[in-house]
């Protein structure tokens, strides 16, 4: 474990907690894409099935359980607890357009044609694009609450830090996992436009709004 990896995990955890707290304290999930959150719950579920088969470390198990638990809690808040505040009219991205091609791709391009390995690959590919419904929603409404921007920034930063971790690991350990690296690169690139807006607007105290 190097510093980039640890910072990435902390950033990821922070993103998840920011979102949970935002919804819980405002009693509202306005501006949040329930579809992205369903996709993230699917990502964690398919990636962390090894919780049932392999013990890696206390840290590993704890983080996995927290990520899964929080992501289901978020989905529950959006679709049950605070359903009345869910902005479904603006959350119109079709999840099947992501899930079906990615399921096919993970069957074709993987490290090993074994059930757990294919599900892990599926989760890596799906994670790289799971934020699209949320970004689509922001572009559709033309704005995002500041707290939602913080969430998106922390979530984008996490994979960027993982990229640094992989560069580090390549030179320090000769380790690289092409599937994770390519997907991580795609994932980070999707956030670049948002990073630009976040730095030029939100950090200067302005609300994130897109030009009409």
């Amino acid at each position: 474990m190097n510093l980039f990896r640890l910072a990435g995990d902390v950033s990821h955890l922070l993103a998840i907690i920011i979102l949970l707290l935002k919804i819980w304290r405002t009693r509202s999930c306005a501006g949040i894409s329930g579809k992205s959150q369903i996709l993230f719950a699917l990502v964690f579920t398919t990636r962390y099935l090894d919780l049932l088969t392999t013990f890696i470390s206390f840290y590993n198990t704890t983080m996995k359980v927290i990520y899964i638990g929080c992501s289901y809690a978020t989905v529950w808040m959006i679709y049950a607890k605070f359903k009345a505040t869910y902005d479904s009219n603006h959350d119109t991205f079709r999840m099947e357009f992501l899930v079906i091609p990615i399921a096919a791709l993970s069957l074709l391009v993987n490290h090993d044609f074994a059930p757990l390995e294919i599900l892990w690959t599926f989760s890596i590919y799906l994670e790289s694009v799971a934020i699209l419904p949320q970004l689509f929603m922001v572009s559709k409404t033309g704005e995002a609450e500041t707290i939602t921007s913080h969430y998106l920034f922390a979530l984008g930063l996490y994979r960027a830090l993982y990229l640094m971790n992989w560069i580090w690991r390549f030179f320090a350990e000769g380790f690289f996992d092409l599937i994770a690296i390519v997907a991580g690169l795609v994932q980070t690139i999707l956030y670049c436009d948002f990073f630009y807006l976040y730095i030029t607007k939100v950090l200067k105290g302005k609300k994130l709004s897109l030009p009409a």
Binding site: D9, I56, S57, K64, H111, D112, E117, N165, D177, A180
Partner: peptide, 10 residues
């Protein structure tokens, strides 16, 4: 060698 796949990362 495929058994050595690193799944420590989250």
């Amino acid at each position: 060698e495929l058994d050595d796949l690193d799944k420590d990362e989250l």
